Computed example of a mutant assay.
Amino acid sequence: MPSSADKAATFRALHDRPGAFIIPNPWDAGTARLLAALGFEALASTSLGLANMLGRPDSQVSRSEVIENCRAIVDATDLPVNVDLENGFAHAPQDAAEAIRLAAQAGAAGGSIEDATGDARNPIYDFDLSVARVRAAVAVARAQPVPFLLTARAENLIRGRTDMADTIRRLQAYEEAGADVLYAPGLRNLPEVRQVVGAVNRPVNVVTGWLDPAITAGQLAEAGAKRISVGGALSRLALATFVNAGRAMKEQGSFAWMPQMLGVAEMQRLLGAGAGVAPSGRFRTA
């Protein structure tokens, strides 16, 4: 079983090597193990997926629930985990940065802090406060006994501010404040990805939710993206399948969806492999 330091080193190396990697977003231990069994090299939590699991609207999760969910995903596999910490669950820089310390203690190899306020009337923190919040988060990340990879998110594009110039200005300032990875959710096409990547000197995370789904990981890598996440998309896909099956039963009395189920034996094999357990029940050694 790799140590927290081993996971941190693996996570850093993924960002340093050539090309891009996909970091999918599980929402619990089971989905984490399934993704690990499929061969992914790192995982990222999703606040939307957690909210869906808890039966709540997005962003209505607490810091303690996010940290507990992070710990469950960390403990489920051998993979490094990046945790979605929203805005740190606080406005003041030092208070928001406390979420970084808690995530590190839970075993996360990295995490993100965003500049969205949670207030629809004033959705983005003022520039200076946003930079101060990243700077405080960086200080806490650097103070951890195990290196913690900090991602700074500029939320303009998904919060009603379609201002690319300000988004890039913020990302550049977050880079200057010490962020390890930069992230502007809401990029819509490859030219916008290239524009952001060309404006900064840190690895860039791109989330697929606003992109044309025909765009491939290879194309994003060619555009300069380093890390590709899917946010709550896998959770929404799973729930769409669930709802469609429920509608078929309620409205048509149909169980025609059942052949699409993952077989019990295959499910058990994948869960065992994702947990680091071979089909015999013995732990993997390599």
Rank of each mutant, 00 (worst) to 15 (best):
D126G: 15
E175H: 04
L262Y: 05
D58A: 03
P24R: 00
G110Y: 03
D115P: 05
G107S: 09
A76T: 02
N25E: 03
R17G: 11
G272Y: 02
P185M: 04
P18G: 03
L211N: 03
E68A: 15
L102N: 00
M1T: 07
A76L: 09
V200H: 07
N156K: 02
R142N: 14
N244A: 13
F11N: 06
A42Q: 02
A139E: 14
A265W: 12
N82P: 08
E68N: 12
N201D: 14
G118Q: 10
A273I: 13
A72I: 00
A29C: 03
V206D: 06
Q268R: 15
P57M: 08
A248F: 01
S4N: 13
E266T: 10
A286L: 13
I113W: 05
A214Y: 01
G218W: 05
F40I: 07
A217E: 13
R161D: 14
E65T: 10
D212E: 11
T285K: 10
A96V: 01
V197I: 12
G49R: 01
E176F: 05
A76W: 00
E86I: 05
D163G: 07
M53T: 09
M258D: 08
R284P: 01
V146F: 12
P203G: 01
V61I: 15
A90Y: 05
L43A: 02
L190G: 05
A214C: 02
V131T: 01
I228H: 02
A103C: 10
R161I: 14
A143W: 04
S45G: 14
Q105V: 10
V83C: 07
G209F: 03
V196Y: 05
A143L: 04
